[in-house]
Amino acid sequence: MGVKTKAPAIEQGAFFTTRLDAVLNWARKYSLFQYPFATACCGMEFMATAASHYDQARFGAEIPRFSPRQSDVLWVAGTINHKMAPIVKRVHEQMAHPKWVIAFGACASSGGFYQNYAVVQGLDRVIPVDVYIGGCPPRPEAVLDGLIALQDLIQTRGPTGHTGINPRQTKEVLLLSRQ
């Protein structure tokens, strides 16, 4: 019987080493509690995505919390006008860190086709935004793609968020943004 040079558990692959933040980020991205801030028709698409047919719970983003203090990600689904802006800003401030924001649909991303006295020209004029989902309204597939993009963002960049950079941006846009 020879002398063992390694612990038997390692040889059998019973555990492996990694970085702590990678594990934490993995846990974070699969346990997103959501605050749906639905102001317009995009809210219906959010409901369609969360319901059983598209089943957002598959991605760990299962429970809508209607208290910002219990939420990790703020879904702003719909038009944000100047009358509403202080409210969405206050909701965002009440969320505990780490927190992320998704601009859901054309209106929340850029004001959409509204350019007038009432509508904020993009949610990022009020609060920092991590992921923008295009569409008027976006289909549930696009919403899930945005959610997966946010999960990639959390895994790669950790709890800081607020970068405004979509990891799924095309190479062209990324190159342009570095200029």
């Binding site: 100047h82 802006a85 202080p86 350019q115 006295y117 904020v120 990022d124 004029r125 009020v126 846009v173």
Partner: peptide
Amino acid sequence: IHLQQPRVELRPVRERY
């Protein structure tokens, strides 16, 4: 038509395509 009267301080737009 472009005049807006925000109630909160608007964040600056760093880059716009």
